[in-house]
Simulated scan of single mutants.
Amino acid sequence: MTKHITNYRQPRIVVIGGGTGLPVILKSLHKLNADITAVVTVADDGGSSGIIRDYVNVVPPGDIRNVLAALSNLPQLYLDIFQYRFNSNDSFLAGHAIGNLIIAALSEMKSGIFDAVQELSTMMKIDGHVYPASNDPLILNAHFSDGSDIAGEAEITGAGKQIERVWVTSALGQKKPHAVKEVINAIMTADIVVLGPGSLFTSILPNLMIENVGTAVKQTKAQVVYVCNIMTQKGETEHFTDAEHVRVLNQHLGANFVNTVLVNTQPVPDNYMDHQKYDEYLVQVQHDFHGLRELSCRVISDDFLKLRDHGVFHDGDKVAHELLHLASQPSEVIK
């Protein structure tokens, strides 16, 4: 009997972003054995990451830590230790996650975050690749509708103003922010580039505002998919429709580069969400399918909603299955 040998390979998926939404999708893609590269923002200046950045001149490690844990094959006990955050009454280490301290230490040992994360990826038995968007810490800057400018992620989201545009500068002086060649190569050779889910102005756009990253996302032959947020965010996307999210992305890069948008159409039950616990989220994003089509986007709408702990999340498994399906399609079908 003749055996038929196929040259099947898993589609190459590059996911760009940061924040709490990114690991949810990565965990589900990991379960599907996808060929994953995560490009993670390095412009965070809040929480444990911000404190470490203030005292140690390294890229803030929090988002990178969560992505490493999502793609790791270590036993759960080891991951629990890596993710452990000291209690607030431990004054010296209050609020710090052990993984953040490990990443900061390796960054000093390896003279940079990129090599540190590659070393840690081996130690943690990572499937795929985790790439910091830049080897240097970046500062997020914003221009507001009232004409004012503010620097720093926490300051921007806490300003209570409408953001018009954002950009990044190096925390190391006049050096121009750039991504290492591995990041650019991953984007250019991908089958699909995924943006989000995550905060539009503070998790997704900081990556795209690194000039060679933005250029690569516009020039890649891969289809570019945006996973639209389910809820609007205080200080960022108040009153935004799904089309306005995409419009902001396109305006920042000066081109209609988003090919496909994943939109949740399942309503969030009234009074389900705990707005004290999840105080940054406001109301459900409204749909503007006509506006999305005017932006040359294909829209995939479905029930992508996951309700958990009185919070609203994407159903990682449903999104991952949809992304894997899209990644298996020829790019010329979309672009």
Rank of each mutant, 00 (worst) to 15 (best):
G50S: 06
P23M: 04
P23C: 04
D149Y: 01
K318W: 05
S328R: 15
L249M: 02
T260I: 14
V130G: 07
V117P: 04
G254Q: 01
D191N: 15
G19Q: 01
P132Q: 09
G160A: 11
I5L: 10
H30T: 13
D63H: 04
D288M: 06
I103N: 10
F313S: 02
S328H: 15
R165A: 05
N250I: 06
E244Y: 00
H314L: 10
S203I: 06
Q76S: 04
V40D: 13
D279G: 12
Y84I: 06
T265G: 12
N33R: 04
L172C: 12
F304C: 11
N185A: 15
V42N: 12
L200M: 09
V258S: 05
N100A: 08
I187E: 02
M1D: 00
T6L: 09
L200T: 03
Y8L: 02
C228V: 12
E182R: 11
A151L: 03
P132E: 06
D303P: 07
G99K: 04
F289D: 08
V117T: 15
G17D: 05
S48W: 07
I36D: 03
Q329S: 11
T202Q: 04
D115A: 15
L205V: 13
R9Q: 10
I102F: 14
P267Y: 10
K218G: 08
G173E: 10
V42L: 10
E332H: 11
